[in-house]
Design a binder for these strands. Structure first.
Lengths: 331, 331
DNA sequence: CTGTTAGCGCGTTCAA
DNA sequence: TTGAACGCGCTAACAG
């Protein structure tokens, strides 16, 4: 392997001078610079990142912790991150927790040991333990999808999106609307529920407990939740909902699947809407009404924010992204 | 930051001894070991990876080059890779080319500079230039999805899967089958076409040029391709195909979408099948017949193969994974 | 069993 | 404008 020493000898200068031309630091004569550059060219020498990192304490690597890469949300965010980071020569170290919360902690430590310059956390919760740990490792970090006290973050306007979606359903004449949510530790998605409830309340519409179910993030749990809602509602007459909001498109997809199997029509018997603007939402039958959150943009913004922070310290900021309602024939 | 030197002083031993207990190498007295472990515990010291890498020339990082993370195929492979690699303490450095072939070259160089121990290349082609470059950088590398002379690889049995799928369609009475493929530089997917053509030939069935179209990897191009096939076929009577095979589920989805818009029924007017076992395939209307390739398994196998190679050099091997036909009502 | 010594490849003073 | 010398944190020979 060719090292800085070799270059120095070949260019008949010292290692220091080579280092100077490589990093554009300090004075160096035109003559020397030329000789060095020529040799570097010929050998297509590239400095060892290890040695460099050892000296400078910088790695040009950012860690990305995510719950699963197998969702459109995550993969779009990662695409956005990659696009911005690569512009500045940063690379991404992937830390996939596979929805295992403990692994978030492990990875936080691991990334510190690896000496990453910054961390992007695609979070699913904002539990105090996690926030403490983040402060403890003391590395620039930006959360995506969840906001928390004293943390940089890029989030979506879940609350207003949900209110607007609910409002749309009400405008269409629906008064009994069901809702499929997820675990309450996910605050961001929690805001979708809050928005829904408040909009219903604003219209003096009651929400029966039997219309509220929870799923995890997969399609099947949407199927199951829809089944429960229907079977529970049937006990009391006039309690069967005419519309459904699911907090993700996958859940909505599962719910739709159940309805079809039961011979119910969408949207005639049950209107359905989701969140997330899955690429497949428009190819469902009927095409699914949903909310587009611009995930790639979120990734880009997070990257920009993190880079700013890494370059000038303490650039705490909270970015809230806009959303876009996509109305289709499922409602 | 606490270093090995600090630990040595606190435990009243030399750095070497600390290193020995940390790496379980060489002899060390029970007494010394205890003292060191205690101090390590107290300070929760972790060795610097940079310094370690500088010495050992190993990073415990593998690079993963992929064309896009926004497909189920890629994300599942990455999940599989992650699962296996993390068992052995390897981390993944993500290199997303965004379908830009030049970037494959750049990343190959970059990963070398970064000193990764190995590389997984989720390839879309096997062009000679690329293969040369791979040999040039001389780092253990395994290709996923494509095979090539002298390279380790994990691939799918595209050829037989395609023959079997075609055969299934023929058994159902179809004699005019259309085919939506992709660019020919993708050899693996090319085998799907070959399998199709040979199975047709084996049954003495002709394939009209007008039934053969190409898309890129997105849904819209499937839509467009279906449109072309239909409009081209209509010119000659009795040339309208009764079935379609698309090389990916997304293409199939686009094609189905076009047919519906034209008021054609699936499978009555046109049977459709895809490849890839997209999670969404079963929620289409009608559910799509497809081929499951076990992408996560592919990732795992690739990881295992690469690890073996990194540990014992030159472990060249080619793994061909099995497939599974999933018959649904779209045919 | 243990400590001393010598680098790994680089950036960065400090004199010259 | 340049080079010598030092050290980042660690592992590996070698001698004891």
């Amino acid at each position: 392997m060719v090292t800085i020493k070799d270059i120095a000898e070949m260019a008949k200068v010292s290692k220091s001078t080579v280092s100077r031309v490589l990093n554009n630091s300090g004075y160096v004569s035109e003559d020397a610079r030329m000789r060095v550059e020529k040799v570097v060219e010929q050998t297509n020498y590239t400095p060892s990142q290890h040695a460099k990192s050892l000296r400078t304490k910088k790695t040009k690597i950012v860690g990305v912790i995510l719950p699963t890469i197998q969702t459109e949300t995550s993969s779009k965010i990662v695409t956005g991150l990659g696009r911005e980071f690569s512009k500045l020569g940063y690379e991404i170290l992937l830390a996939n927790t596979n929805l295992n919360k403990e692994k978030e902690f492990e990875y936080l430590d691991l990334l510190k040991v690896r000496g990453v310059d910054g961390i992007v956390l695609i979070a699913t919760n904002t539990e105090p333990k996690l926030l403490e740990k983040i402060k403890e490792i003391n590395i620039p970090l930006v959360m995506v999808g969840q906001a928390a006290e004293g943390m940089m973050s890029v989030t979506y306007d879940d609350y207003h999106a949900s209110r607007e979606l609910t409002s749309l359903l009400i405008d269409k004449g629906h008064e009994r609307i069901a809702f499929i949510g997820v675990d309450e530790t996910d605050q961001a998605v929690g805001m979708r529920k809050k928005g829904f409830l408040q909009e219903m309340a604003a219209h003096q519409l009651e929400v029966s407990e039997t219309w509220l179910e929870k799923g995890i993030f997969d399609i099947d749990s949407g199927y199951d939740a829809m089944e429960k809602i229907l079977s529970n509602s049937r006990r009391s007459p006039n309690k069967i909902p005419t519309a459904l909001i699911a907090v993700t498109d996958r859940l909505a997809m599962g719910a739709m699947s159940y309805l079809k199997k039961q011979g119910m029509r969408v949207p005639e018997d049950m209107a359905i809407a989701g969140f997330g603007a899955s690429e497949f939402a428009q190819y469902l039958d009927p095409p699914l009404t949903t909310v587009d959150y611009q995930n790639e943009k979120a990734g880009e913004e997070a990257a920009i924010q993190l880079i700013n922070c890494m370059h000038s310290k303490n650039h705490t900021e909270k970015i809230v992204l806009d959303y876009r309602l996509i109305e289709r024939t499922s409602i």
